[in-house]
Amino acid sequence: MLIKECQGYELVKEKSNTSEDFFNRSEITFTEDGVEKTLHVLYVRYFDEAFQELTPYGQDPLFNEGGKEVAFKDIVALVCLLKNPGLRHRKRLYISSKQEFAAYFQGIDFEKLPEIFRSLAQKNGYELRSPLDFIVQPV
């Protein structure tokens, strides 16, 4: 699987009677078997406030890589796909439970995430051989 892009953003209210401004969207675009796909993860914006509980990072943006600031919302879809590779067959994922959201971040090897963003900046892609490479293995 070739990861082509990871990005996140806050939704903006388009109409006064919608609740879009309470949500963030994180997207990961990848190519698998010659087909380009994008997984859109929609989640409650409030969960961004818990990033210090879910990750080892002390601030947001989390890190700089390839001249780009990488924010928490930029890694959410990536983490979901790494934790549950079956999501590559879906277009959308909606997470409304903080417990479900937190479960995706458990066991992720956060020290390896910058290499994905470095490769995206330098080579316009990252070849993901196995999602297990980003899961902390028991000793």
Score class of each variant (00 low, 15 high):
137 Q>K: 11
123 K>G: 15
61 P>C: 01
132 L>Y: 07
139 V>Y: 12
10 E>T: 01
19 S>E: 08
103 A>M: 14
2 L>N: 14
127 E>P: 11
36 E>G: 07
125 G>K: 06
11 L>Q: 14
82 L>I: 09
70 V>L: 07
138 P>Q: 10
80 C>V: 03
5 E>Q: 13
9 Y>S: 04
27 E>L: 07
72 F>R: 00
18 T>H: 03
63 F>K: 09
14 E>W: 13
46 Y>F: 07
29 T>K: 05
30 F>R: 02
120 L>Q: 07
24 N>A: 05
43 Y>E: 13
81 L>I: 11
15 K>W: 15
68 K>P: 00
90 R>Q: 01
3 I>E: 01
82 L>G: 02
127 E>A: 14
93 L>P: 06
121 A>C: 09
70 V>F: 12
32 E>Q: 12
43 Y>G: 00
8 G>I: 02
48 D>P: 07
81 L>Y: 13
101 F>H: 09
26 S>P: 06
45 R>K: 09
27 E>F: 14
124 N>H: 10
132 L>F: 11
34 G>Y: 03
66 G>V: 04
58 G>S: 15
30 F>G: 09
4 K>I: 13
74 D>N: 03
32 E>W: 08
99 Q>E: 10
125 G>W: 04
106 Q>D: 05
113 L>Y: 09
40 H>P: 03
34 G>L: 06
29 T>V: 02
67 G>P: 03
64 N>E: 04
25 R>D: 14
3 I>M: 01
33 D>N: 12
78 L>W: 00
56 P>K: 10
34 G>T: 08
11 L>R: 14
54 L>A: 15
64 N>A: 06
25 R>A: 06
38 T>V: 02
3 I>G: 02
123 K>A: 12
18 T>E: 10
118 R>S: 07
33 D>Y: 15
32 E>R: 05
101 F>G: 04
105 F>K: 14
